[in-house]
Design a protein around this nucleic acid. Sequence first.
DNA 1: CAATAGGGGACTAATTATGTCCTTTTTATC
DNA 2: GATAAAAAGGACATAATTAGTCCCCTATTG
Lengths: 142, 142
Amino acid sequence: MQITRQTEYAIHTLLELSRVPFGELLQTKAISERQGIPEDFLKKTIQILARAGLVQTQRGTQGGVRLARPSSQITLGDVIAAIEGPLAINVCLAYGNQCPDKGTCQVHRILQGAQKALVDELNRRTFADIVEMERSAEQAPH
Amino acid sequence: MQITRQTEYAIHTLLELSRVPFGELLQTKAISERQGIPEDFLKKTIQILARAGLVQTQRGTQGGVRLARPSSQITLGDVIAAIEGPLAINVCLAYGNQCPDKGTCQVHRILQGAQKALVDELNRRTFADIVEMERSAEQAPH
DNA sequence: CAATAGGGGACTAATTATGTCCTTTTTATC
DNA sequence: GATAAAAAGGACATAATTAGTCCCCTATTG
C-alpha cells in the first residue's frame, strides 16, 4: 500500500464534499480550482470514487458530485481502499495472493499484524470527525 | 511507504543470516540461489544493508556477509527503513516535507497516527523472535 | 599471482503514476 | 427542440520508479 497523489486528491475531494451540507452538489471544476488539482485527472478520480459507491454524480447543467452517504459513514480507509484497491502493504498480503508458505511464514504474520494496525487507525475516524476537528482547531486560541 | 520486492529480498536475506550462528559468513551467491533472487540485484541490496549498518561484508576468497549485530537487535522496521528510507506512508509525512498547512491539517494527524501504529508493529519483533517463531511452528503438531 | 567474492557504475526494460486531449452522453434551461 | 453545461470515458503522452542485467574494479586469501 502506498498513498499516491491521486489518493490525496481523493481525500481532499471527500473533505470538500464533507464541508457542505449533505446532499449538496459541488462541481468537479470548482473542486479542482480550489485544491489545485488538474481537472481532467480529478474527473477520473471522482469516477473511481463513484464506482466505489462513495460519491454520486449528476450530469448536465447544474450537475456535480455529492456524497453517497453522510460523511459520518466514510473513513480515510474507505477512500484509500477505493483508489488503491484493498489495502495491502506488500505483494505477499495482496488479496488473492497465494504465497507458497503463507501458512508457516512468520514474516507474513507480522506484516499482517502491522497492516491491521494501520487499517484500524485509518478506519477509526470518519470525515465528519475530521471536519469537526478542523472546526475546533480553527476556533482554538493559537 | 510500500514494501517492494527489493525489501522482500532484504528481509529474506536477513532471515537467512539470522538462522546461522552470529558472526558466520554467508555468500551472496548462496543466498541468491536458496531464495531465488537474481544475484546481481541481491548484491546491490546487500550493499544497501551494509551501508545502513545492518550487515557487514567481507571481500575476497572465503568472504561473504554477516549480521552487524545480533538478530535480537534487528527488526523488520529496520530493514524496511534501510531499503526504502524513513517510513512515510505518503508524501505529506515524508521526512523534510513542509506541507503548508501541516500544523492544522487533521488528515495529516490521522495519517501520522496510522503510520505510527504501523511502525510500532514493525519494530515490535526482532529477527531473533521470527526465527524462534519459525522453530516453534515447525515443531508444533500439524 | 591466481582465484574468489563483494563494490559499483552504466544501461535497459517493465511497470506504475500522472497527466492531457478529444469526443460522447446526459440533463437543465431557454 | 436547441443550446449549453457538466460528467463519462477512451486514447495517448510523459515521467518516475522498480527491477534486472552487464561489465569491470577492488580487496582478500592461499
